[in-house]
Simulated assay, not measured.
Amino acid sequence: MAASGTLSSLLKLLSWRNMNLDSYKYIVVEGPIGVGKTTLVNKIAAHLGARVLLEQPQANPFLEKFYRDAGRYALSTQMFFLFQRINQLRETAQNDMFDNPGHLVADFMLAKDSIFASLTLADEELKLYQQMYEHLRPQAATPDLVIYLQAEPETLIERIRKRGIEMESAISQDYLARLCEGYSRFFYHYDDAPLLIVNNEHLDLAGSDADFSLLLARIDGMRGRREFFNRGE
Rank of each mutant, 00 (worst) to 15 (best):
A217W: 02
C180P: 01
S213W: 01
H189T: 12
S213V: 01
Y183H: 11
F212V: 04
L179A: 12
S208A: 04
D191Q: 14
G221E: 11
G221M: 09
E181W: 05
V198E: 04
R223I: 11
L214G: 12
G207V: 01
D204V: 00
Y183A: 05
F229G: 04
F228M: 07
R218C: 13
G182K: 03
H189C: 06
N200A: 05
S208M: 00
R226P: 03
Y183C: 03
D220W: 07
R218D: 13
I219A: 02
N199C: 11
L214R: 15
R223V: 10
Y188W: 05
A206V: 05
G221P: 04
V198N: 07
Y183E: 02
E201Y: 07
S184V: 10
F212N: 04
L195N: 02
N199Y: 12
A193V: 07
D211Y: 13
C180M: 04
A217I: 02
R225N: 13
A206R: 15
E181A: 14
L214W: 11
D191C: 11
E227G: 13
D211G: 10
D209P: 04
F212C: 01
L196G: 09
F187S: 07
H202C: 10
E227M: 13
L203T: 02
N200R: 02
G207R: 00
L214C: 14
H202F: 14
I219R: 06
P194N: 07
L216A: 10
D220A: 14
A193C: 09
A193N: 06
